[in-house]
Design a protein around this nucleic acid. Sequence first.
DNA 1: TGAACATATGATAATATATTCATATGAACA
DNA 2: TGTTCATATGAATATATTATCATATGTTCA
Lengths: 104, 104
Amino acid sequence: MPKKDEYKLRGMTEDDLLGLADLFKMFADSTRIKILYDLFDGEKNVSEICEDIEMNQSAVSHQLKALKTAKLVRSRREGKSIVYALDDDHVKTIIAMGKEHIEE
Amino acid sequence: MPKKDEYKLRGMTEDDLLGLADLFKMFADSTRIKILYDLFDGEKNVSEICEDIEMNQSAVSHQLKALKTAKLVRSRREGKSIVYALDDDHVKTIIAMGKEHIEE
DNA sequence: TGAACATATGATAATATATTCATATGAACA
DNA sequence: TGTTCATATGAATATATTATCATATGTTCA
């Protein structure tokens, strides 16, 4: 059966574009972008992130979960802590492009 | 006088990071990303954009205004129409990086 | 094993954001 | 000049998103 008149934009389906928007949502919130930027330094556990970005633990945990679902960060246990790290090289590139746009 | 304890994250002030998040918000909505993606083809007027992305004129106009404020598109009059175009090379790069992330 | 610690989670309230509808603006041209 | 066409805008509603609070989960180590 034919897909119910889903249109395409230069080869991208509507779902593709919705997925793209969802990805960029991850960068579109100040708490999340602070977390991502903080992880540029390398792995950090949740408490360290909270201190660095001055946000409380619950808010950070909620946002870390969103970032993990989006496959932008990964985590592993290390003793009592959970350590997070960037999980995609594109994260740095995307943020770098954003900075360039702003700096012009 | 000292700035009231604004912290920095790897050389970025809080305001810098808020600005980055605001930029990425432009890519984080399906209507706006459809518009941007539609303009990959080149200049288009508002009616053409509406048809391509199947959204009504008012919604498109509101979002074009947001994109213009963010300096991601520019516009000029051409006869009765207003023609829009991408106004920043980074737009294509940023979206391309997003696509790569998703395709993996 | 159980107390202490680190993180995660669910529900709620506060806030932000997008779409719609009605209408305004402003250029073109008869 | 006034009508028509294309776009922009304001206000209101609908929807999504986030931070917070309270508490649950799971580890470590005495």
